[in-house]
Amino acid sequence: MTDRKDETGLDALFAAARDEAPMPSGDFMMRLQAQALAEMPQAGARAAEPGFFAQLREALGGWKGASGLAAASLVGLWLGISPPAAVSEYWPGASQVSLGEIGLDPASGYDLAWIEG
């Protein structure tokens, strides 16, 4: 296998190494074969693409994320329709407090510029 005759005798050693190639035991080859078969993909078992709703659920963080999001949406909707009395104590509503009293200017700089021309 070498390019040219080697004068120092290495060729003879390489030839001996090729002749004395280490062989695996039959028992080990059986284990290797068992491993190959165990790792082999099953014929036609490639997983189908997940559907639209499955992908959406995954995007929202699986079942936990999606159900948390749904619960939070429902609570928000309920608070909007029927705010509990405790909330009113903190926020009496626009009928009783004007925006100026709580430090908000109802007209922005842009609005004023528009009015003044």
Partner: peptide
């Protein structure tokens, strides 16, 4: 063929490559 689930290919590849890798 192995990736398609061909057991004969698994055996043939093991017999062919196992001894080379081991040596």
């Amino acid at each position: 063929a192995y990736a398609r689930g061909d057991a004969q290919a698994a055996r043939a590849l093991t017999a062919r490559l196992g001894p080379r890798v081991f040596a």
